[in-house]
Design a protein around this nucleic acid. Structure first.
Length: 860
RNA sequence: GCGGACGUGGCGAAACUGGUAGACGCAGCAGACUUAAAAUCUGCUUCCUUUCAGGAGUGCGGGUUCGAUCCCCGCCGUCCGCACCA
């Protein structure tokens, strides 16, 4: 008899649904503790991919386990439904973004439901639904009223041919992806959330996030980027267009005596001023504008610059002046958009100085170096040392003591002051696009920016838009933007920018607590469920999405919507799903389904020609190395897909999807089914006495319960899987051993525990096994508590002690635990192999680690 | 370029975070069952030396320690993020 997953899986899903196993109230009255499990909700691209299967399987294991542990578990699902792909589909295929999105959602919901996830589907929503984004508009207006939103000019990537703003990913090698035209930077008036208001708090609170991965906290801390330094004002030797000084931010004011130039960003006002009269500078600035706004691009391109001819005075050295350059690596967004260059102690400045033959004066002498003859070669010295060539700073320790002294002097001279600087920039949320949440403000010539009245919310997107011309369809709409000013009644214009989709995902976790509420969040529901106890998603979101959510939660707290500051108490970041890639003889990428893969190599399934096996890489459509979860569930069932995805490796690491691995997982589902097939509850009470074999099986069962609990708590799902294999092996072995009277009882115990233990991972098979073992009379596993291990069966009766001589293993001892050191050492010395090696040698040290190891250290 | 991680048999990995490296699975090999194949079951499986017994071994090179996959220093390789992809 074989396990018929195709029949069983829909059956048990219907049972769970009929029992409402996974539904919870907005404000539960059960008295049980709460646990909120959330996986990052998907973008509705149309099909689920293996990354989703992994993410939602991980979350489901946690949700089911916690539910069994007696928690009320909130485990919702929704759709991150606004975004560029829907507009691209509209432009390419003429389908309306709304239609495209809702059809995708329907398809993906059906696929997700086949996975047997323990979700409360009654809480489902999509961010493109006015019932969601209308609430978001309320939040926007509350933030605006609280001074957390601001309008200012900032730079965007502009495609001059398509007349549209480009996302960084739409800029390829400095050109627009569709038009191929060189991209230009352009300044637009944009809306910003003032995330920098919370910079100190966002940084400090990281310490309290003890259930977040350390690396994520580090990345966030570096991203927020607190630094202590100084602002220094350099007087220009001659004013330029009314500008008579350059303010610079530096973290190394101690190296001011080593300066050899000042460099300003191409967007710096002074660069514009010089451009007006200097064609060379104007040309350079224009060229920098064609680089787009991506920091990664700016930082990796060749360091270039141009001398403006201007000179600045040194704050400490009367009479000394230095050239002012425009440099393509100076960022307008960081500090003041201007730096001073000290080539001896900053690698980038050194590269720049070497390239343009600027002086390199060392001012920090590294420890152990002689001052005389010390020069800087190809490497700048950015470490500690003692100040030289630095006037009043000479002899001080760098950087700290010298830094304080330099700042004190700058302040005394009125040439600057010590400041704390943040790398974090305010969050620009304006998008010149249709498929997003409309920003609910009106621009009035007389009244300025006027909020859309709350009674007019949700401010809906118009449906009748066209995508036949470049730019923002909202802007082109014949009527939508024309509106009377709510304040004065005069003709006014709606804001036509929509929100960054990161805004939608920055508070959805709060909305899930009360998805139907008439306000953004219902107070009691949010108070009960927040924060999310376990959040699970891809490491690629380690910075932006998580930081924005942390900001949003604080902004919602400031405007009275929630009473927590941190959205996610626990965070787990999963790795990607990867697969081999294949290329045919003509160089085209091939889908795994088109390839016959053997240990020796690969051939094309139809033509039989040789196929090149490429690297194992993240699944992507462009390389066609994708596997369709739907097809896997058709062939093997959801439990097999879930089991394999959990068993392969630790969830935080990238996993390789392999056909052989899935087949192996499938075989195990059948093996479990066979093991339990025909087994029913033994008649009579529990036996008084167990044979050694039956006792050993019972120990294995209870150790598995304990081990699995520990593994599941610690996200070591691959270890949990291994423990399940071990118990299954133990049951199979016991089957073969002589059938002592009590063995039947021990075996039934093992099997019925095993059925319950695999439930978080393979919920359908668990129900099937459970129902068969108990003749259908013992309820749903989904509603049973987690098994408890019998402490008496966890007691360790024998330990294996390794015996080393000079750190090398020479023997092992089998002993009862807790033996005294002398006894263990004596037993170790008596081992023939050990005695042989100790013969005639002097033992200088005898190491004994109880119940673990003995080590004899010999003289000489 | 900057920031963050990761690297263990043929492959995915485990190892009570300083104490027997390789649990468990995949693949492979041998055997049983079968007319045969599939499925299933049993055994073997880090590498080297001639078994007994040794030697080497956790990306590479050093260091600390009785003892290092684990701690420290320096390299190499791979991956993630870099603010308008989600």
């Amino acid at each position: 008899m074989r396990y018929d997953f195709a029949r069983a899986e829909p059956h048990w899903q219907a049972q769970w649904d009929a029992h409402g196993c996974f539904r919870v109230a907005d404000v539960p009255t059960s008295g049980r503790p709460k646990y909120y499990v959330l996986e990052m909700f998907p973008y509705p691209s149309g099909k689920i991919h293996m990354g989703h299967v992994r993410n939602y399987t991980l979350g489901d294991v946690v949700a089911r386990y916690k539910r069994a542990r007696g928690f009320d578990v909130l485990h919702p699902m929704g759709w991150d439904a606004f975004g560029l792909p829907a507009e691209n589909a509209a432009r390419e295929r003429g389908v309306h973004p709304a239609q495209w999105t809702w059809e995708n959602i329907a398809a993906m919901r059906a696929e997700l439901q086949r996975m047997g996830l323990s979700l409360d589907w009654t809480r489902e929503f999509a961010t493109c639904d006015p019932s969601y984004y209308g609430q978001q508009q309320k939040l926007f207006l509350d933030f605006l009223a609280a001074g957390l939103v601001e309008r200012r000019e900032s730079w965007v990537n502009w495609d001059p041919v398509d007349g549209t703003v480009l996302a960084n990913e739409q800029v390829i090698d400095g050109r627009g992806w569709r038009s191929g035209a060189p991209v230009e930077k352009k300044q637009l008036w944009q809306w910003f959330f003032k995330i920098t208001d919370f910079a100190p708090e966002l940084l400090d609170a990281l310490d309290g996030l003890d259930r977040w991965p350390e690396r994520v906290r580090l990345m966030q801390a570096n991203w927020i980027g607190r630094s202590e330094g100084a602002r220094v004002r350099f007087a220009l030797a001659g004013a330029e267009a009314g500008i008579d000084e350059i303010e610079v931010y530096t973290t190394r004011p101690d190296t001011l005596f080593g300066m050899s130039f000042v460099a300003i960003a191409p967007e710096h006002p002074l660069a514009a001023a010089v451009s007006a009269r200097d064609a060379g500078v104007a040309e350079f600035v224009a060229e920098c504008r064609r680089m787009g706004t991506s920091e990664a691009v700016i930082e990796t391109m060749e360091k270039r610059g141009i001398d403006t001819g201007l000179r600045v005075a040194h704050p400490f050295i009367p009479g000394a002046t230095y050239p002012v350059w425009v440099a393509n690596f100076v960022l307008m967004e960081y500090g003041t958009g201007a730096i001073f260059g000290c080539p001896a102690h900053d690698q980038r400045d050194l590269d720049f100085a070497r390239k343009f033959s600027l002086p390199v004066v060392p001012v920090v002498l590294p420890p152990g170096e002689a001052e005389q003859g010390f020069t800087i070669g190809a490497k700048a010295h950015d470490g500690t040392g003692r100040m030289i060539n630095s006037g009043f700073l000479d002899g001080l320790a760098a950087p700290d003591a010298a830094k304080s002294a330099a700042i004190a002097e700058l302040e005394r001279l009125g040439a600057g002051q010590g400041v704390v600087n943040w790398r974090l920039r305010d969050w620009g949320v304006s998008r010149q696009r249709y498929w997003g949440c409309p920003i609910p403000v009106i621009h009035c010539a007389a009244c300025g920016v006027v909020p859309v009245p709350s009674g007019d919310l949700p401010l809906r997107l118009p449906d009748d838009v066209t995508f036949d011309q470049p730019g923002n369809p909202l802007d082109h709409h014949p009527t939508w933007k024309h509106v009377a000013c709510p304040a004065c009644g005069a003709a006014a214009r709606r804001e036509t920018d929509t929100c960054d989709t990161f805004v939608d995902s920055a508070w959805y976790f709060a909305r899930f607590c009360s998805p139907a509420a008439k306000e953004p969040v219902q107070e009691e529901a949010a108070a009960h469920w927040l924060p999310v106890d376990q959040y699970i998603g891809g490491i690629e979101h380690a910075i932006l999405h998580l930081l924005y959510s942390r900001f949003f939660t604080r902004a919602m707290r400031a405007t009275g919507h929630v009473d927590v500051s941190e959205p996610f108490a626990g965070l787990f970041t999963q790795g990607m799903v990867t697969h081999e890639s294949y290329r045919g003889a003509d160089g085209r990428w091939l889908y795994p389904g088109e390839v016959n893969r053997t240990a020796e190599g690969a051939t094309h399934r139809e033509t039989g020609e040789a196929v090149t096996v490429g690297r194992v890489e993240a699944m992507s459509k462009s390389r066609r190395n994708t596997v369709d979860p739907g097809a896997i569930i058709d062939r093997f069932g959801a439990d097999t897909a879930r089991w394999f995805i959990l068993s392969d490796n630790p969830p935080e690491r990238d996993m390789e999807w392999t056909e052989a691995g899935v087949v192996g997982a499938y075989r195990f589902t059948q093996r479990l089914f066979r093991l339990a097939d025909g087994v029913t509850a033994p008649a009579g009470a529990r036996p008084e006495v167990f044979s050694p074999a039956a006792h050993a099986l019972r120990q294995a069962t209870h150790r598995t319960i304990a081990a699995l609990s520990e593994a599941l708590e610690g996200f070591a799902f691959n270890v949990a899987v291994a423990r399940v294999y071990e118990l299954a092996n133990a049951i199979a072995d016991a089957e073969k051993s002589a059938d002592a009277p009590a063995m039947g009882w021990a075996r039934f115990e093992a099997l019925s525990m095993l059925a319950r233990l695999v439930c978080p991972m393979m919920p359908h098979l668990a129900e099937e096994l459970h129902a068969r073992l108990h003749g259908g009379a013992a309820g749903l596993v989904a509603e049973l508590p987690w098994p408890e291990a019998d402490a008496a069966l966890l007691v360790v009766e024998r330990v294996t002690i390794a015996v080393q001589v000079m750190g090398k293993l020479r023997a092992t001892l089998e002993l009862a635990p807790g033996m005294a050191a002398e006894h263990v050492l004596a037993a170790a010395e008596a081992e023939p192999n050990v005695a042989r090696l100790l013969e005639g040698r002097r033992v200088v040290k005898r190491v004994h680690v109880p119940d673990r190891i003995v080590n004899f250290v010999l003289a000489g």
